[in-house]
């Protein structure tokens, strides 16, 4: 006897059909490959990126003939020699690495208290305010934000107007290295807070209360309890900030006044100004190499933090 409609609803039957169809497409005996199947789109994407990287590596081994503006057929390391021999590229590389380190440090110093207050505050209004202040910049692109700083920090801008009220003559606040770092810190702060917040949320408030009940003041609690427990978040946030800063283009271009290039600006110049794609490719691979070294060093020293999805390195 067939089951009644009430006993076996249509949506169950639909699910049965779908399951049968899925079984035909991907038989149950293949189930051990299910994980790989789900990974396939991501792997495909990575493969495409790798193919691109291989092509860039290939391009970096051919030099530009300026009589024909075509690259040589022969392979050579001349582009790498040019990149390492010319002081300008080393200076720009150093500026990028130093900038990434300073910006990461400053951003973490600012992001930690921001994230901590956002997570711990009892006031829902304050939490909402902090969240809005955090997310609002995401709706404004990096370039627009940089132009905003041009208006605020310019010779005739708001800050100089305020300084003028107390008799200070207009100061050149833009087009220098500190201006670039300032813009980058402001840009990176939301990323860092978003990476830190889950780690801070995961620290039970009772742990801090226990430390206090055992006689630790807030500073000792912070140093011995909160910071160690927030380490995965700090590491994850640091990795994101250092990677994004190292490869940033817009802030040095806009706030640097043309004299504070990062390596991404130098790469752009080679690809689009001098048409020397080989040298541009060599600089690109140097950047990839330095970025990988930095991330590898952090992984080795501190683990992958929240990027390891909660598996702390022991």
């Amino acid at each position: 006897m067939r089951p009644s409609r009430a006993e076996y609803p249509y949506r169950w039957r639909l699910m049965d059909r779908l399951e049968a169809a899925a079984d035909r497409l991907f038989p149950r005996r293949w189930s051990r490959w299910t994980g790989w199947l789900m990974l396939a789109p991501a792997l495909l994407l990575v493969a495409v990126l790798l193919i691109g990287l291989v092509q860039i590596a290939d391009a970096s081994l051919h030099t530009l003939d300026r009589k024909t503006f075509r690259t040589s057929a022969a392979y050579s390391l001349d582009n790498y020699r040019a990149a390492l021999d010319q002081g300008v590229y080393l200076a720009v590389l150093w500026r990028s690495v130093l900038g990434a380190a300073i910006v990461t440090l400053l951003t973490l110093l600012l992001a930690f208290p921001y994230g901590y207050v956002m997570v711990r505050t009892r006031s829902s209004n304050l939490r909402k305010l902090l969240l809005i202040a955090l997310f609002l910049p995401f709706f404004i692109g990096q370039v627009v934000r940089a132009y905003g700083w041009l208006i605020i920090l310019g010779n005739g801008g708001l800050v100089n107007d305020l300084l003028g009220l107390v008799g200070v003559p207009p100061q050149r606040l833009l087009f220098n290295y500190p201006a670039v770092l300032f813009g980058l810190v402001q840009y990176m702060l939301p990323f860092a807070v978003l990476m830190l917040a889950p780690a801070l949320t995961a620290i039970p408030e009772e742990t801090e209360a226990a430390a206090g009940s055992l006689g630790a003041n807030w500073l000792r609690t912070l140093w011995h309890v909160v910071l160690p427990m927030a380490r995965p978040g700090l590491v994850g946030a640091g990795l994101v900030v250092v990677s994004l800063t190292l490869t940033d283009f817009a802030m040095p271009a806009i706030l640097g006044g043309g004299g504070q290039d990062f390596i991404a600006n130098a790469i752009y110049d080679q690809f689009f100004r001098t048409s020397d794609q080989g040298l541009g490719a060599a600089l690109t691979l140097l950047l990839v190499g330095i970025g990988s070294l930095v991330v590898g060093a952090v992984f080795t020293a501190f683990g992958a933090g929240t990027l390891a999805m909660g598996r702390a390195r022991t």
């Binding site: 300026r66 200076a91 500026r95």
Partner: peptide, 18 residues
């Protein structure tokens, strides 16, 4: 200009970015 552009560009950048 095109034959020497890269060299001039690098030299100018080396001075200005130094």
């Amino acid at each position: 200009q095109v034959e020497n552009e890269s060299e001039w560009f690098a030299k100018f950048k080396a001075i200005m970015q130094g």
